[in-house]
Design a protein around this nucleic acid. Structure first.
Lengths: 134, 134
DNA sequence: ATCTCTGCAAATGTTTTGCAGACAA
DNA sequence: TTGTCTGCAAAACATTTGCAGAGAT
């Protein structure tokens, strides 16, 4: 009897993915592919930089992480849930906190109405010092 | 008698800078260095891509323009005034409109207070369709 | 068995830089 | 004259990709 063929289009659970997802979840701050690669460096079976790139993009597509391009033009990733929200980034420890979006949307709508601009989407980020670092 | 030496640390007004500043002011939308270089291409005395890069950065430092890194990781520039404000970007024509910041600051402060996060700075952008394109 | 994932090395695309000559003041 | 700008070509980086073999189901 023939073995069932692999489910087409399906994603595999691999060591690299688990490792990187866990690392990102532990850190809770924006990390570049290079940074992840560096932090991974100590673990026994190495993961290549290409795989780090591919995995981070995979996590974003899956909704497990979100990405952001920092001032230096480097793409950075952080663990977060899929529902729309904003990020408060601590300038001291780098920790990222999720912020609810509703109040932001409200203001955005008011402002755009004034400009006769039909709003489709918005982005917002907060920078400062988190409770733990004050 | 000796001619007066050039004022040290001073900036020169050159053809390249005037040309690029005018182009950016006419366009009022985010343009990459490559895009500016392309648009410049038709004019008689050519400006090199390096100079475009240097000039755009110069305009930002001078407060005549602001930059933003788009989704593809490309750095883009737009003419704008120096006081803090936000940008509404039309998805159709690319036109950028300046939005006052006060209402955004108010909401930001309220939100951050709830999270015991000391707010230092924020960023916000609006995407949609401008009045002319509706 | 089959289809996906990974590593490696090479390719890409953007932005930066060193240097000598052109240009503004 | 003096210091700043510019063009050119090379360098520096971050990110992507082709391919063959390893791994997951």
């Amino acid at each position: 009897m023939k073995a069932a063929p692999a489910d087409p289009g399906r994603h595999y659970a691999t060591r690299a993915r688990e490792t990187i997802a866990r690392l990102l979840a532990d850190q809770r701050r924006y990390l570049s592919a290079a940074a992840v690669y560096r932090l991974l460096g100590k673990r026994k079976p190495k993961v290549s930089l290409s795989t780090v790139y591919r995995t981070l993009e995979f996590l974003v597509e899956t909704g497990i992480a979100s990405k952001r391009i920092d001032d230096g033009g480097e793409t950075t990733y952080v663990t977060c849930n899929a529902v729309h929200h904003h990020h408060a980034i601590c300038s001291n420890c780098g920790r990222v906190e999720e912020i609810e979006c509703a109040p932001v949307t409200a203001i955005a709508n008011q402002l755009m109405a004034r400009h006769s601009f039909k709003l489709n989407d918005h982005e917002m980020e907060f920078y400062g010092t988190c409770a733990a670092c004050r």
